[in-house]
Design a protein around this nucleic acid. Structure first.
Lengths: 335, 335
DNA sequence: CTGAAAGCGCTTACAG
DNA sequence: CTGAAAGCGCTTACAG
C-alpha cells in the first residue's frame, strides 16, 4: 500500500533537470555520471524524500533482494525450543550488511505444494530451509526450479542440495565415550525423532560409542523435542531397564523431562543415574543439577548457512556441498 | 531470481486461446467469465505450471501482500527470551489464511531512519512493531507516512498509533496484593527496564498495591530481561534491605536470576523470601521451586495485534485504538 | 557523459 | 462475456 503521490523517478529527474536514466545511474551507483549531475540528483532525492519503488525494480531486474527462511514444521516445536530462536539470530547476523530482507515462511500456513510454488514463483532470490522432516520433497522441488537453497540440517532424502549441520554423530559418540569413561555400565539413550537426521545421527554416534566399549545398544527410547516427551521416554526406559545408570538425551529439553521423571522415581542425578544432554541451551544451566551436555553452536549454524547461500547468490564458484560444524562436551553436575 | 523462461500471462492466454484480460480475471476470481473460458484457462495454467509474477502484480496494484514484523531491539534479548518466540507464534497464527507473507525486520540491520524509510517505501502493506524502547520515533514516522501499523506493547511516546498490550499494571497490582495477603511485610520489586512501558506499568501496579496496603515503596531495583540482570538486582536489594521477605520480579527470567542469588546467600524460597515472577513462561515451571507468576498470554498478544492490523488493512471501521489483554495469578511453590 | 525508447508482466478502465 | 490498450515505475541497451 504505497502512499499514492509518493515521488517517482520521473519527478526526481524533472526536479534535477536530468533524464530518468541519469537518476537511475546515480541511485544504483553506476559509473559515468558527471559530478554536477550527481549533485543535482542527490539534492532532488533528498528534497523529495524519494525512495525507489521496489516492485518496479524487481520486475525489471528479476531479483527481489529477499531470501526466505522456511521452517518446515507444523507444530509448536519451532517456538518452544531455543533452537529456532538461535537459528534466527544467526541468519539475521549473517544477513547484516547484505541489504536483503528476510521473509519468514512456515508450513502451517500453506500446504507443501503451495509452499514450493510460492518459493519458485519469484518471490525470493533464495531459501534457507530449517527443520526438515522425513523425506520432504521440498528440497528436490527447489532444485528442479533452480532456486538457490541451503538447508539447516542434513536432509534424509538423498538430494544434492547443500546443507550445514552440526556434527551430530561425533556429538553422540562423545557423549557415549564420556559416560563410559565415567565408569557407567548400563548406558541408555533417549533419541530424537526417528524421522529427522538429527535424531538418527546422534543415535548412531551413541551406538558407535557403545560398540567400541563393548556395551549393548538396546537401551533406546525415542522422544520428540519436548519436556513431556523426555519425561515419558525416561519412564519407559526405567520400566524396561530398572538397572540403567546413565542416559544420553538427544537434547537438553529432553534431558529436563528425564530429570523430572528421575526425581519423581527417587533416582539421584548423578549419583544413581548420570545424564548428558545435547545443545548447551539455556536449559542446561537452569536445570538442577546443571546438565553436562554436548554443545552445538546453533547461532553459528544459522550464520554459516546464510553465508553459504549469499555466496551462492553472489555467484561464487567451488562452494562446498555441505559443512559440518564441530560439537564439544561441556562437563557439569549431571554426570 | 525468477527463472527465466517461466511462463507469463501472455503465454497462458495464447495456450488457452483467450486474451490476457480473461486470464487475469480467472486468476483473480473476478466475475464475468464464461465457464468455457475458465476451463480453458485453468487447464493452460496447470499445464504450464503458471504462477503469477508478484513484482508485476505489486507494481500495478500498489499492494505487496506482505506485512512487516519489526523487532525494535538491537541486542540479544529478542532471542534469549521466550517472549519473542511466542509473539512470532501468535503473529503467524493470526496470519494463517490471510495469504500474506511476513517480512521480519530488526533494528540491528539498519539504522532507525533507514528502517522507517524502508517501511514507508512500499515494501509492505502494514507493520507490527514489537519491543519498542523509550520514545522511539518510529511509530510517528509510520503514522506520518500513512502506513498502517499496530504496536505490541504500549509506547512511551504519546503517539496515536494503536497498540495491543497485556494489562501489566493490573498484573503488578495482583502480584503485590498476593504477597500482602500472604502476610509478607517487606516486599521488594525487581522492575524491568525503566525505558519501556512494560517496565514502568508493572512497577506502577506494584506501587499501587503497596500503597493500598500501607507498605513502603522504596524496595526497588531495576533489571534488564536476563538471568544475570535478575541475579545482580537481587544482590543489590539484599545488600540494601537485608530484612526483605518478598520480591515481585517483573519477569520469570529475572526471577530465575533472583532465585540464583537467593540460593547463594542461603535464603530459602518461599520460607525466607517469597518470590513472584511475571509471564508464566517455561522458566516458571522449570525453576526450583516452581514460580508463582503472573500469566500473560503472549501468543494471544501476537494474534490479537495481527488481527487488528489485518482488520485495518481490510478497511474495517471503528476499530479500537488499543486493546489490553487480561493477566492472571498462577500460584505455585515460590510463594 | 547523457537521453529517448523499449520493455519487465501484470491489472484495469473502456468499448464492444 | 471478451479483448485492445494504457499504464504501474523502474532498468538497460542503444545511439549520440
Amino acid at each position: 500500500m504505497r502512499p499514492t503521490g509518493a515521488p517517482t523517478l520521473e519527478e526526481v529527474a524533472r526536479a534535477a533537470g536530468v533524464s530518468r536514466s541519469t537518476v537511475s545511474r546515480v541511485i544504483n551507483n553506476l559509473p559515468g555520471v558527471s559530478k554536477r549531475a550527481k549533485v543535482a540528483v542527490d539534492r532532488a532525492i533528498a528534497e523529495l524524500r524519494y525512495v525507489p519503488n521496489q516492485a518496479a525494480r524487481n520486475l525489471v531486474t528479476r531479483r527481489t533482494n529477499s531470501i526466505a527462511l522456511v521452517v518446515s514444521e507444523h507444530g509448536d516445536r519451532v517456538f518452544g525450543d531455543p533452537f529456532f530462536a538461535n537459528i534466527l539470530r544467526g541468519v539475521y547476523a549473517g544477513m547484516a550488511g547484505s541489504r536483503r530482507q528476510l521473509v519468514l515462511l512456515m508450513d502451517q500456513a500453506r500446504d507443501d505444494s503451495t509452499l514450493a510454488d510460492y518459493l519458485c514463483a519469484g518471490h525470493v532470490d533464495g531459501a534457507i530451509v530449517v527443520s526438515l522432516h522425513g523425506r520432504d520433497p521440498l528440497p528436490g522441488r527447489l532444485l528442479d526450479a533452480g532456486l538457490p537453497a541451503v538447508l539447516v540440517g542434513r536432509p534424509l532424502a538423498d538430494v544434492p542440495v547443500p546443507y550445514v549441520d552440526s556434527d551430530n554423530m561425533t556429538g553422540g559418540l562423545t557423549a557415549a565415550r564420556h559416560l563410559v569413561a565415567a565408569g557407567r555400565g548400563r548406558i541408555a539413550t533417549i533419541a530424537g525423532p526417528a524421522d529427522m537426521a538429527v535424531g538418527i545421527d546422534r543415535l548412531v554416534g551413541w551406538r558407535r560409542g557403545m560398540d567400541e566399549a563393548g556395551h549393548g545398544t538396546d537401551l533406546v527410547a525415542h522422544s520428540d523435542f519436548s519436556i513431556e516427551g523426555g519425561a515419558a521416554a525416561m519412564a519407559e526406559l526405567l520400566a524396561a531397564h530398572p538397572d540403567l545408570d546413565a542416559v544420553f538425551a538427544a537434547a537438553d529439553i529432553i534431558a529436563v523431562g528425564a530429570l523430572r521423571t528421575l526425581a519423581e522415581q527417587g533416582r539421584r542425578v548423578p549419583e544413581d543415574v548420570a545424564l548428558v544432554g545435547f545443545d548447551d541451551s539455556v536449559l542446561a544451566t537452569t536445570a538442577v543439577p546443571q546438565l553436562t551436555t554436548i554443545r552445538q553452536d546453533v547461532e553459528e549454524l544459522g550464520r554459516t548457512t546464510t553465508a553459504r547461500l549469499l555466496a551462492q547468490l553472489a555467484g561464487e564458484q567451488n562452494l562446498p556441498a555441505s559443512v559440518l560444524l564441530p560439537t564439544e562436551l561441556v562437563h557439569r553436575a549431571s554426570s
